[in-house]
Design a protein around this nucleic acid. Structure first.
Lengths: 126, 126
DNA sequence: TTATATTTGCAACTTAGTTGCATTAAAATT
DNA sequence: AATTTTAATGCAACTAAGTTGCAAATATAA
């Protein structure tokens, strides 16, 4: 599909992702922008930003959908992936800078991969 | 918590996992056993089997919860993990036999990890 | 400025998973 | 074997993330 118009909701959402390098859940975005945009709009814009390769998504605790800015995602997303870390105490999710390469899997076509590591973050661990 | 009693529902669920080596979604189990057990029961038994280390769970496409039998899970689940493969066409999920080791992550405590690879399975790829 | 095509908001809906509580069944005790 | 205790079950009502259809609003093209 792809983004076609630079609307207020697109700007507002991109702005949220520029403010922090962490991943943000759709739920959180809906809460933050509740007064400004309808949740339907937010879901739809997130969808399109993902289609455009601006964001990528993955599932965190309780099946919640999280989004993060793609930094180097677009290129070699098939054989390498960067893991996300979710703190089971505070719920925060970070994109880890490390890269993990996948094992070879014969006879299958890999399209997407996600590695979610869960535990205690720096703050909650200390 | 842990399983305490050997009830019909526990037997029936274990039986489902013995029949195939694939992972099975909670949704599918509820459908299969709908006439015999209430969905609440199925969710609760799955929960307990997971607590007991008999099954492990992870999130697949659309945030659905999947369960699979633990083979070698209990031991070194922190630094190694085996990936699951989900076919985006037919939806089937398999536990892959390969093992991936995680990168070191300073100052954080890893509790669980899951690596989900999505694409086309042997059948749908051919 | 007008025409066209996309985006938005709203309300109603879908559905996986949860909760409280009364009932039933398994295991322990006698 | 009968009874007591404790855990498991079914049911109905609920929760909440995410979706859908449609009319109204807004961005871009002409």
């Amino acid at each position: 599909m792809g983004i076609i118009r630079k609307t207020k909701s697109v700007e507002a959402l991109l702005n949220e992702f520029n403010k922090s390098s962490s991943a943000i859940s759709a739920k959180k975005l809906i809460q933050s922008l509740d007064s400004k945009f309808n949740k339907t709009t937010i879901y739809r814009v997130l969808d399109k930003l993902e289609d455009d390769g601006v964001l990528h998504s993955f599932l965190g605790k309780n099946g919640l959908k999280w989004y993060a800015k793609c930094n180097d995602c677009s290129s070699n997303k098939h054989r390498d992936l960067h893991p996300h870390f979710q703190c089971l105490d505070c719920g925060k999710v970070d994109c880890l800078a490390v890269s993990v390469s996948l094992p070879k899997i014969p006879n299958r076509k890999i399209e997407v991969s996600q590695l979610l590591i869960q535990g205690k973050c720096e703050t909650c661990f200390a």
